[in-house]
Each structure stands twice: as C-alpha cells, then as structure tokens.
Nucleic acid binder design. Structure first.
Lengths: 202, 202
DNA sequence: GTCTATACTCTGATAGAC
DNA sequence: GTCTATCAGAGTATAGAC
C-alpha cells in the first residue's frame, strides 16, 4: 500500500485531498488541484483518468482513515466501560488530526448517496457485538437498561458534532480558535464522564 | 413576511430550495431549478439577479427556520430540566419535518465559512442564559456539576447527528427507511432519558 | 411577466511536442 | 513523464420578441 506510488502521484493525491475536502466534488476545480500540486492540469489526467476517479481515490482514502478504527474498537473484546473510554480517546484524537474528514464524507454522501453505498458495506461495521455486550452488562447489573442503537448514536454524535458543525458551534460559544481547540481536547474527558454518569445504575 | 411574494416567485424559491439542498450551491444547476419550477431559466434571473442571490434567499430561509427556535427555548425562563425536555421535543420534531436542512447549512458553512458569519451573528444565540441556569442548579444541588459549553454540544450533537449523518448511521444500524423513521421518533424519549440520567446527582 | 435564442465564460478533457 | 495549446461541452447570464 505504501510508495509503490510515484512522487508526483502522491503530490497530486495530497493536493486533491486539500481541494476536494475544502470545496467538495462539485466545487473543486481541476486547475486548482494542479496549482496546489505545482504541476500541470494535463498530468492529473495522465495519472488519474479524470475528475471522477481522482475524487474516488481521495474519498476512499478519507473513509479508510476513519471507519476501520471505529470498527476495531467497537468489536474489540474488552469490557464495555473500558471500550467507551478507549473509543472516545482514540476517536477524538483521530478527529483532532483530521478535523475536516467527517464533514467531507457526510457532505458527499448526502449529495450522492448511492455512489458509495457499496463501499461503506465493505467496511461493514457490525454493531451487534457492542449491542450484545450492552445486553450482557445490563443483565449482570453492571449498567442501567439502555438500548444499543440509541447509545451508539449518542456517543458518535457527541464526538463528531463539534467537528462537523465547528463554524456554528464555535460562533455560538464565542470561542477563539485557540479556545475551541482546547475545548475539543477537553471533550475526551467530558464525553466519557457524561456517558459514564448516564449508564450508571441509579 | 407572507405572500407579498408573487406566485411564481414562491414557485422558484421552493424549487431552488429542493435543488440547492439536494446538490449544494456548486452542484446545483439553474436549468434544473427552472425545470423543477416548471418555468424558464430566464425567469430565474428576472426574479432574482443570479445564482448567488437565489441561493442566498434559500440559505437565509433555511437558517431562519432553525436558529430562532433554538434561541427561544434556550433563553426561555423555565426550569432547566423542563427546558431540556422542551428543547429535545420541539427540536427533533422540527428536524423530522425538515430533515435535510442541517446538513445543508453545515455543508455550505464549511465550504464558504466567511460568507455567512455576519448572518449568523444576527440570530446571535446567547448561551449565557443557559450557562447561568446550569450554574445556579449546580449550586442549589439540583444537578451534578457540569460545564455548560460541553453540555450544550452534547445535547445538540445527540439531536442533530442522526439527521446529518443519516446515510452512514442508517447503514451501520442496518435499518430500513421505516425503521429509521421510528428510530428518529424514539430519540426524543431516549435523549431526554440519557441526559437526565447523566445530570442527576449520583 | 414569460418565452426563445444567443453570447460568453469556465472547465474538463485531449492532442501532440519535447 | 511533463508541458503547451486547444477543443468541446456545460453553465450562467443577457438581449429582445411577445
């Protein structure tokens, strides 16, 4: 998977990533990608067949950088509470390193849902393992009775939302960029605490 | 605000809303909007000056249909717990009626953040009132100690995420359209319960 | 107010030299 | 592999008849 790709090819991919993520598929311009990569427009077509295929490469990479990690943690064989902590920690760190990926994926998924349905299935995240784990812990009196599907959506929502909707949220909270970065870091602790408190037996 | 607008103008706005929300600004085509409205392309320019201004009208309407409600509830003078229930209920219902608005707003806000910064300020949601309310309830021993900024992000994230990321979430949970609709309705109860449990004194 | 026809710009893609 | 030059199509916008 690594560096069978030529130097120029990587340059193009990186430039394309920047532009596509910033502007979306429809808003991106091949010329801008070429400029960003410091090469000529024709080279884009030489390495990739066209805009569609270049985008496809970028999108696949974006998805590949996120879904497998969710999958691994969710399906790991560790206790439920431990899993939550690990998930939030690693996931928010991943988001801090790639803050624009989720909005990008969601945006393109919404404008063209069918294009990638099959791709998503390849990463087939199976939440059943987590659901079973929750049922077990409920039965054993470890946690209060909760539903797995709603729980996972709550968890994902709390982790992802401040990244996806950053402009709105940051504006609403009247935070500077530095303050918001700090805020995002804090969320690891805060989300875990919020969840732990909620699943505890009352 | 109502029906000073001509019939055709409303027809155009409604068509533009559909197309812009579905395709985004860059992906939308004036021709498609004209077709959707059942009129000619030139009429779009007659009523609105061009694509930019037509989009502006649609976007403003989309924002206007959501932010004021958040503001009203957040700033209302009712007890904290009551406010949460009311917020989740009314907000999720609003989302059920307009499920594509949030992703649309976020998408355009991300691709062109500067364009609407001032517009958002007009709706200036002031979360300070809620923060003060939380501090008061904490002091009075009504709820455990929580931070207002993280709390509001948690709440918004849990409400909005299943709408914004519907394709991914629905696929992950392997739900049919009908099942997912039901799931979204259920969230009103589930989110409230999740939050209430979390803010309770332990 | 609404239509047809058209001008003009932008952009993705290709041809062909080096 | 990389560049310059250019084509063909799409898309916004406008002119002008009715």
């Amino acid at each position: 998977m690594t560096s069978i790709l030529s130097n120029t090819e990587l340059l193009i991919l990186e430039a394309a990533r920047k532009v596509f993520i910033h502007k979306g598929f429809a808003g991106a311009r091949m010329q801008e990608i070429a400029d960003e990569a410091g090469i000529n427009k024709a080279l884009l077509h030489y390495y990739f067949r066209g805009k569609d295929q270049l985008f496809e490469a970028v999108f696949a990479q974006a998805v590949a950088s996120f879904l497998p990690m969710i999958k691994d943690v969710l399906e790991a064989e560790i206790p439920f509470r431990e899993k939550i902590v690990k998930f939030v920690d690693t996931y928010v760190d991943l988001l801090l390193a790639n803050p624009h990926i989720p909005a990008f994926v969601i945006q393109e998924l919404n404008t063209d849902p069918l294009r990638f349905v099959d791709k998503l299935k390849n990463y087939g995240i199976n939440p059943e393992i987590l659901f079973e784990q929750i049922k077990m812990d409920v039965k054993n009196g470890q946690i209060r009775e909760i539903r797995g599907d709603h729980f996972i959506v709550n968890l994902l929502g709390m982790c992802l939302f401040p990244f996806i909707a950053r402009p709105v949220v940051q504006g609403m909270l009247r935070k500077s960029n530095e303050q918001y970065e700090l805020f995002l870091h804090e969320r690891k602790k805060e989300v875990v605490q919020f969840v732990m408190q909620s699943i505890a037996l009352s």
